[in-house]
Amino acid sequence: MVTGVAGTAVGPMVIAAVEQHRSPGQRLLHDPLAIPVLPPLSRWVARLAGRPAVRAALIRASERAAPGVWGGVACRKRYIDDRFTRALDDGIGSAVVPGAGPGTRAHRSAVPADAVVFEVDLPVNVAHKRERLPAHRRVVLVPVDLDSEDLSGVPTAHGRDSGERCLVVCEGVTRYLTREGVRWTFDFLPDQAPGSRLVSTYVRKDVLDGDEMYGSEALHRRFVAGRPVWRFGLHPHEVGAFLAERGWREVEQLGPAEFDARYVRGTGRTVPISALERTVPAEKR
């Protein structure tokens, strides 16, 4: 069983799994491996959501507990899927995914024969993924605790060419790290080759500070006030400087308005999207 911080990624994967029961034109993302990768109880719930009444009840419960998180998670996953595919199609030869958790992106993507994806995560999450998914010859699973181990030499030690352009995907990770953990995770960015790309999510700092909840008071009580699992956040205006210090340029930021326009409207659905989290792509100068 995956518990504690290592288990917090299960909820987003349940969202991805339940979305698979909708028709291709209505689902927010495509992830055929989302159900198989889940732990047994979550997998049973996700399969049960094939019944429309069960699916509707799950979404209602999610909206009561965390308004807009269902749509936000689904849309951020879809957006990062698009960036991941585009980067590999553009000839970027490797991807590094800190805190990959049970995510299936690399395992269901057409990774070119000359590219490698390095998924870095807690040993318990790596072990779980090895149990649930078949080995992928273009994906290397690397057990590392990002809060206590330096990421800088990990991909190279496992065979990555440090001189090639790289895609770094940091989805739903930074909120769980201490400031020291964020430093260990992001300070390898300056060493990446020009033309490398990054896509990262972050929780808004005003949520962690309790200044603005965006309807997520229950999440604040659970992850910040009660059990301090969410520990790092940024204000939107701080992101550009945070990246520039490491030699990167912010490309854009996406939140509810952008995700709704790109992914929700075309489905014909009305899907609330939380403002507590934002997604940022960047490029190495």
Score class of each variant (00 low, 15 high):
197 R>G: 03
229 V>H: 01
80 I>N: 04
39 P>G: 13
199 V>Y: 02
113 A>L: 07
71 G>H: 02
180 E>G: 14
158 H>F: 14
246 R>M: 07
46 A>P: 09
282 A>C: 09
18 V>D: 02
121 D>T: 07
80 I>Y: 03
20 Q>T: 09
28 L>A: 07
165 R>H: 10
4 G>I: 04
147 D>V: 14
234 L>F: 10
10 V>Y: 06
148 S>Q: 09
278 R>P: 01
41 L>K: 13
14 V>K: 02
87 A>H: 01
184 W>H: 14
184 W>V: 14
8 T>G: 03
14 V>Q: 03
152 S>F: 12
283 E>M: 04
233 G>E: 05
244 A>W: 08
192 Q>H: 06
83 R>A: 09
137 R>T: 10
95 A>V: 15
154 V>L: 09
252 E>I: 07
121 D>M: 09
232 F>L: 07
76 R>F: 00
124 V>P: 01
140 V>L: 05
257 A>E: 11
258 E>M: 02
120 V>H: 06
190 P>N: 09
157 A>I: 01
130 R>K: 14
31 D>G: 12
237 H>G: 06
154 V>M: 07
208 L>R: 00
68 G>C: 06
252 E>K: 01
43 R>S: 13
204 R>I: 08
264 V>T: 06
57 A>N: 04
21 H>M: 07
188 F>D: 11
101 G>R: 05
238 E>I: 10
29 L>W: 05
135 A>P: 10
250 E>K: 13
132 R>I: 01
84 F>V: 08
136 H>M: 03
128 H>I: 01
47 R>H: 03
273 I>W: 09
187 D>F: 13
227 R>M: 07
57 A>D: 04
127 A>S: 10
87 A>D: 08
275 A>M: 04
109 S>R: 13
173 V>A: 11
160 R>A: 13
125 N>F: 00
150 D>C: 11
178 T>S: 15
243 L>S: 13
149 E>N: 05
180 E>W: 00
137 R>F: 00
172 G>N: 08
164 E>Y: 01
166 C>S: 15
27 R>Y: 06
32 P>Y: 07
112 P>E: 10
111 V>H: 07
77 K>P: 00
204 R>A: 15
172 G>Y: 10
76 R>Q: 01
207 V>W: 14
70 W>R: 00
117 V>R: 10
255 G>S: 04
82 D>I: 04
10 V>F: 03
126 V>N: 00
128 H>Y: 09
128 H>R: 08
276 L>P: 01
110 A>D: 12
247 G>C: 05
262 R>L: 15
222 R>W: 04
49 A>M: 03
